[in-house]
Simulated assay, not measured.
Amino acid sequence: MMHDESTALVVQPGEAAGASLTDGAFELLADGGAVSASRLTLATGADGAPPHHHKLSHELFYVLGGTILFRLGDALSAVGKGGLVVIPPGLPHVFGAAEGETADVLVVLSPGIERFGYFERLAAISHGEAEFASLLPEQLRYDVHFEDISDWRSAPSR
């Protein structure tokens, strides 16, 4: 939901824009301005966004339920309900529901950049309605810069 930064933004239950994924759903709460915020629910063991980093924004994850596995640079961290992760600009990361668990997480990016189009495209990709390659030219627009991190759930070998 876009808002005028001179007023408070209030999003009542049921007012958020939604985007369904094959393995979960987004509630798109706020877009642009000081923050972009969404709530993401993931099915058992499902991946979240593809491996990426942000050049401009910090990204905050607050786990509302379940356990999320994060790959933060070369480190793996499992974070359960009530846990908080703040990722600085430039740090490659990827996340998903831990094996055998569902997950529910609030995600906030600051400063906010209009990203609803990105989330809607991710939903279309998850349903086979668009190709992942369609996001590649949009990396700068959405400040989502993709990383090549294969088998991200395994600790990197040294």
Rank of each mutant, 00 (worst) to 15 (best):
I125A: 09
F132Y: 14
L140D: 15
P92A: 07
V63Y: 06
V63A: 08
A75R: 14
G96P: 07
E120W: 06
F119K: 00
A124N: 11
H52D: 02
R71A: 09
L76H: 07
G96N: 08
F61S: 07
I87E: 00
S134R: 04
S126I: 10
F61V: 07
L76N: 07
E59I: 04
L140Q: 14
I125G: 08
H58W: 13
R121V: 06
A103R: 01
E129K: 15
V63D: 05
I87Q: 01
V63G: 07
D104L: 02
K55V: 10
G128Y: 10
V108K: 01
L122H: 05
E99G: 03
G117K: 10
T102C: 05
G73R: 05
K81V: 14
E131W: 01
G96M: 10
G73Q: 05
E129H: 14
H127A: 15
S126C: 12
A124Q: 15
F132W: 04
P51V: 07
R71Y: 04
L136M: 15
A103E: 02
A133P: 00
R115P: 04
G128E: 10
G117M: 10
P92S: 06
D104N: 11
L140I: 13
G128R: 08
L91G: 01
H127F: 14
G83I: 10
Y62K: 10
L136D: 09
P137R: 04
I125R: 06
V94E: 08
P89D: 01
D104G: 00
H58D: 12
A78N: 11
L72C: 03
R121Q: 14
A75H: 11
L109T: 08
A78I: 00
K55A: 15
K81D: 09
A103T: 01
H52K: 02
G65L: 09
V79D: 03
G65P: 05
V107R: 00
Y118K: 05
V86M: 08
D104R: 01
L76M: 09
V63E: 05
L56V: 13
A78T: 12
R71H: 05
L109W: 03
A130G: 11
I68D: 00
S110T: 13
K55G: 13
V63K: 05
F132R: 11
G80D: 09
G66N: 06
F119S: 07
P88T: 05
L91F: 02
H127N: 11
V79F: 08
G96A: 12
S57G: 12
A75E: 15
